[in-house]
Each structure stands twice: as structure tokens, then as C-alpha cells.
């Protein structure tokens, strides 16, 4: 994939000017640092980052999104995951809006919602101005301690119309997976079969704000944690939507958490404009038709991508 090294490179460059702290103190460094010593600058930048974090001198937005933490900590980790572990190939990045709002709608799969995180990280890297994808998550995500805060800090929020419309109204790129748990929690035998799209709430959010809908097809996530069975009683006991049995989980204990290294393909499809439909946001016919159109587009694209990837664990 051609874009990524460039993205990663640009990233490194962006860190340095911010990281160089302005030192007002009268204290001279004990040893004069050699000009252009890259390690000295890195250490100084790292320490300045730590100090900013420890003194709370950073900004978060009203949804709890912490761009600095996302950029410096989570993005590099996810980059390793999607580039080196999943060997992700991305196409159609030109369909993403350079500025202004947009609703990115994808297929959901893989037992653990890893595809959402990967999609957000990939989009940030391939986008010409490195925009962030603001993910919408189910309320279960926000019930869980730690997970909820991780999601908020990386830009996610509750999947509800007020939040979606607020984000789109601010001109953000919003990511949504209308299948929800039906998509993530389906069995491996059902792979790449799109589930029902619910009430199409995502469509009405896009219509109300006139945001274009960008369907995205993600191939590869189904094989990361292939769910062979679902132990319903255990799920009910733990108040989870499903309890997965995969080739490695729960047999291998913590090792079962490691995703299988499948080959990923992600394609962004041409945007579907909605600006002319703003008045139809409450019209169920328009909403369902549009939801169906998005669903069909993704399903077709999935078939195309699967043909391009004969071996799920290929290079």
C-alpha cells in the first residue's frame, strides 16, 4: 500500500515541532546538545509530552475526544496492527470528503469490533488531510468501564441520533455500522452476509444534516476471530449479546485474544449525496430505500473484494 509509509513519515515530522518545548526557565541545560541530534530532540519531545499529559494541559472536545492521545498513542499501535499484522490494502480514498461532514457506513464483523478501530486508523492515514473518523458505538460499549473511556478518548460516542447529528452538524466524518451486534456476533458460516440494517437511523441523521453517505466494504475482519459457536446461556448469564467460541477462544485462554492474521481489503465507495433530501428525513420510504441502497452497495463491493482475495490468509 503506497499511502501508508508517506502517512507514517508525515506523522513523525508532525510530532517534532509540537514536541520541542519552549523553555522559559533560566536554567541552562547541563550539557549543550549538539544541534540536530535527533535522539536529544526525541527525548525532549517525549518528556514534554509526558509533562503535558501529567499536568492536564491538553484539550478534549465535548464528546471526550482527545486528539493528542489518539495521535501519539493509539494511532501508532493500530498502524502496526493494520499494516503489519493484517497487511491491509485500501482503495477508494478519493471518495472521502476532503472537508465537511460525511457519514461512513460499513459492514461489521469479527466477534470483537476490531474493524471499527482499524477503519478509523486507516481512514486517518489515507485521508489527504488526515481527518479523524468519529465512530458511533452501541450503548453496551459505554456500559463497560475502561472500554467506554477508550472509545470516547479516540473520538467515539453513543450511537444515537442526537450525537450523530451533532457530530455531522459540526462537519465531522462519522463512522457507523448499522448491523450492530447482529453483524459482529454472527457465526463464521454467515461471513460476509450483511445483516439487517435496523431502523435506518443513520440515514435520517445524514438526511437531517445533508451529509453524504460513503459506503465502505471491509474484508478480512470476519477471519480475525472466526466465531464457530455462540453459547447463549453463558451470554445471558454475563448479560452479553453473545458468548463466542472461536478456534482459539476460550481454549487458549489469553492467547485466544490474539486476532488471526487475515488479509484485509478496505474499499470506500463513491459518496451518495443526501443534500437534496433534507426534507425527507422523517419519510420512512425514503429512509428505507436509501438504507437498502447503501446495504446493496456494500454487499456488492464485498463480493468484488472477496474475488480479489482468494486466500483469507494470503500475503
Amino acid at each position: 500500500m503506497a499511502e501508508e509509509p508517506a502517512g507514517a513519515e508525515a506523522n513523525v515530522h508532525r510530532v517534532d515541532p509540537v514536541g520541542r518545548p519552549a523553555r522559559p526557565g533560566p536554567r541552562e541545560p547541563a550539557v549543550a546538545d549538539e544541534p540536530g541530534d535527533v535522539w536529544d530532540r526525541r527525548v525532549a519531545a517525549g518528556l514534554a509530552f509526558l509533562r503535558r499529559r501529567l499536568s492536564g494541559r491538553y484539550e478534549i472536545d465535548e464528546f471526550g475526544f482527545d486528539p493528542e492521545l489518539t495521535e501519539q498513542v493509539f494511532q501508532p499501535l493500530l498502524r502496526v496492527l493494520y499494516r503489519d499484522w493484517f497487511r491491509t490494502e485500501v482503495t477508494g480514498a478519493e471518495h472521502l470528503p476532503v472537508e465537511g461532514s460525511g457519514l461512513v457506513v460499513g459492514n461489521h464483523s469479527g466477534t470483537v469490533a476490531l474493524d471499527a478501530l482499524v477503519l478509523a486508523a486507516v481512514l486517518h492515514d489515507v485521508h489527504p488531510t488526515h481527518r479523524y473518523l468519529r465512530l458511533l458505538g452501541a450503548d453496551l460499549v459505554f456500559r463497560m468501564p475502561f472500554v467506554s473511556e477508550l472509545v470516547r478518548k479516540t473520538g467515539g460516542t453513543m450511537a444515537c441520533n442526537p450525537d450523530a447529528e451533532r457530530l455531522l452538524g459540526r462537519g465531522e466524518l462519522v463512522g457507523v455500522f448499522p448491523e450492530g451486534f447482529k453483524g459482529v456476533g454472527k457465526l463464521y458460516s454467515e461471513r460476509y452476509k450483511l445483516q439487517r440494517f435496523g431502523r435506518g437511523g443513520f440515514v435520517s441523521a445524514a438526511l437531517r444534516t445533508g451529509a453524504p453517505i460513503i459506503p465502505v466494504a471491509i474484508v478480512g475482519a470476519e477471519e480475525t476471530y472466526p466465531m464457530l459457536a455462540n453459547i447463549t446461556p453463558l451470554a445471558r448469564l454475563l448479560k452479553l449479546p453473545y458468548f463466542p467460541v472461536t478456534p482459539t477462544f476460550p481454549w487458549l485462554g489469553p492467547l485466544g485474544v490474539v486476532p488471526l492474521p487475515s488479509k484485509w481489503l478496505i474499499e470506500f465507495c463513491p459518496p451518495i449525496p443526501t443534500a437534496h433530501l433534507v426534507d425527507s428525513a422523517d419519510d420512512p420510504l425514503v429512509v428505507f430505500n436509501l438504507a437498502d441502497q447503501v446495504r446493496e452497495t456494500i454487499q456488492q463491493k464485498l463480493h468484488e473484494l472477496l474475488e480479489r482475495r482468494p486466500d483469507p490468509f494470503g500475503p
Binding site: E62, F63, G64, D139, R143, T157, M158, C160, P162, R166
Partner: peptide, 8 residues
């Protein structure tokens, strides 16, 4: 837990 992020 089902609250929107921002209350109007």
C-alpha cells in the same frame, strides 16, 4: 449509559 454525549 444511554444518554447522548451533550444535553440540550
Amino acid at each position: 449509559f444511554r444518554d447522548p454525549a451533550v444535553f440540550t
